[in-house]
Design a protein around this nucleic acid. Structure first.
Lengths: 222, 222
DNA sequence: AATGTGCTAATTGTATACAAATAGCATGAA
DNA sequence: TTCATGCTATTTGTATACAATTAGCACATT
């Protein structure tokens, strides 16, 4: 059999608990699960077609990441995402991504071929933007930044990013979406890509901050 | 009955899984569990006097935080803490704590009474230092920085800190300990405390970086 | 000898069953 | 009416039992 036809089973690289965590987060993104809502284990488990054991593992993961808040013997609820929290997420994101690009830039400069990973994600982002497929846009956007973290080689930043990315993803779901925003994404990310290859750290720092902050206060003229 | 005599049971603010996670991390700190070692669920569970269910929840938490690495159907092992990783932890810590102090400083300046929380922790740190009680020193040290995160009001930073703090704690356990280091801790932290109340952000930024970096390259003269 | 194959033991993954704690409501007394 | 008390139903927490996957070893084949 051919080596990479990848037929049926697919070795399952993610545990059931992690898959459940993803489904829950996507549910929050899509609005099916609302911030502040209580999560009943039995109910959620049968919705996800699994028993309570792996579901509880998923809840523990999400609790460690701050997506869910639990009180022993009282249950879990989805963390509230207010104005203030959204601001905190942006702040943390800027801090994290600044280190990531600073560490990654020399590697991209030394080996520009690494940028192909970013190019693929930009392409995916743009094709999704053409159809206003927001969830694919959001995921590709976060994957772009995850890729930078990966290339940076700093695994700690990578782990922290995994937590933060879920928060960012959820805020993406909460935003009002405008077609013009989608159209601008490709250019935004391409600029970051180019600065990474150029290795211009100073420009990167400001560009990252603009890019992350952009979403909230957009220019008046559009 | 008197309101705060807090007799026997104590409402259990932490789930068994979270307690288990703490015990495991402390085990790594103390050297009982070694980085790279595989963790067998059955064995660990009976050592901690619990069943595999809450233990697995603990492992999921630790995996989300990067303390443990798991592969489905193959098991979990403690993440390796090499030179490189230690450096990454320091980098991430500087980035996180910089935002924390920047956000917290105005609050300390506006309300200096908040600093009493820090003072208590410094006191605990110094009394532990007098006896070279390293684990208490380490915990108080991290509690000091956790307190700053708390006062900053940024809950995202708080969550990320919880992950990072466990890494830092473990590196504390791996360090060679010298009495002179213990003696210097009080002064180090008191300086940060003072700058927070003064609200001097620029000085704080450099002081935090020095403080965090200190541990690794110490001055030649002592 | 080297390699491949099948069996067995060990380990992880999941479901079910049961214990403990909580919350809501009804009941009753002040 | 208001507050306290106790019962019941719901929900979470944990243990045990079983299924599925993996790893190691013996054995056979080339």
């Amino acid at each position: 059999m051919a080596a990479d036809t990848r037929s049926s089973p697919a070795p399952a690289r993610l545990s059931l608990a992690e898959q459940a965590a993803d489904v829950i987060v996507t549910g929050i993104y899509s609005g099916a699960l609302k911030p502040g809502a209580r999560l009943f284990e039995k109910e959620l488990a049968q919705q996800l077609v699994m028993s309570r054991v792996p579901l509880r593992e998923a809840l523990k993961i999400l609790e460690a990441q701050g997506i869910v808040e639990s009180i022993p013997h009282k249950g879990s609820r989805i963390t509230l995402f207010g104005e203030e929290r959204t601001g905190h997420i942006v702040e943390a994101r800027i801090a994290l991504e600044r280190i990531a690009v600073t560490a990654a830039a020399p590697r991209y400069k030394a080996n520009p071929a690494l940028a192909s990973g970013l190019d693929h994600l930009i392409a995916r982002m743009e094709s999704a933007a053409a159809q206003l497929d927001w969830i694919t846009i959001s995921k590709a956007d976060l994957d772009f930044h995850r890729e930078i973290c990966r290339v940076s080689g700093n695994e700690i930043i990578g782990k922290l990013w995994e937590s933060l990315a879920r928060h960012v993803f959820i805020t993406f779901g909460l935003e009002k979406r405008k077609a013009e925003d989608a159209a601008a994404l490709g250019e935004q990310h391409r600029r970051i890509r180019d600065l990474l290859i150029a290795g211009d750290d100073v420009a990167l720092q400001t560009q990252i901050e603009i890019h992350i902050t952009r979403i909230r206060r957009r220019p008046p003229k559009a």
